[in-house]
């Protein structure tokens, strides 16, 4: 610990409170009214697939195309995951298969 006890506590407290604030904001704005505005209902329907697509890109954001193995470990493991899922439609099998494949590839290259 390079800083004191209370300074540590206040940094953690601010982080916790602001994090809670970002989670509570939409509910503070729209949670109290009896009827949710139609535009919010619309966003609630179309946002999930959009955000999941953004998160998929987020997972690959640190892929390195400039050095060996040129992001091949990630791409091959992602391909294995997708193929397993299209084949058997078992979430756990697809995830376990993809992850084991990725860990093996990392150690090979």
């Amino acid at each position: 610990m390079t800083i004191g006890f209370w300074q540590s506590v206040s940094i953690i407290a601010v982080t916790a409170l602001v994090t809670l604030l970002t989670r509570a904001l939409p509910f503070l704005f729209f949670g109290g009214r009896r009827e949710t505005p139609r535009v919010i209902v619309y966003l609630g329907r179309v946002l999930p697939p959009a955000i999941i697509a953004v998160l998929v890109v987020y997972c690959f954001k640190n892929m390195d195309f400039t050095h060996t193995p040129y992001g091949l470990c990630e791409l091959v493991a992602a391909g294995v995951t997708a193929a397993l899922h299209l084949w058997r439609r078992s979430t756990v099998l697809s995830i376990a298969g993809g992850t084991v494949c990725y860990m093996l590839l990392l150690r090979l290259f």
């Binding site: 999930p48 493991a77 992602a78 899922h85 992850t99 860990m103």
Partner: peptide, 20 residues
């Protein structure tokens, strides 16, 4: 355990495929 964090990537991919 290097690489086990790919679990998250795989999870998002699977959800993406299901939603698609």
């Amino acid at each position: 355990f290097t690489g086990i964090d790919f679990t998250m990537t795989a999870l998002f991919l699977v959800i993406f495929i299901d939603q698609w």
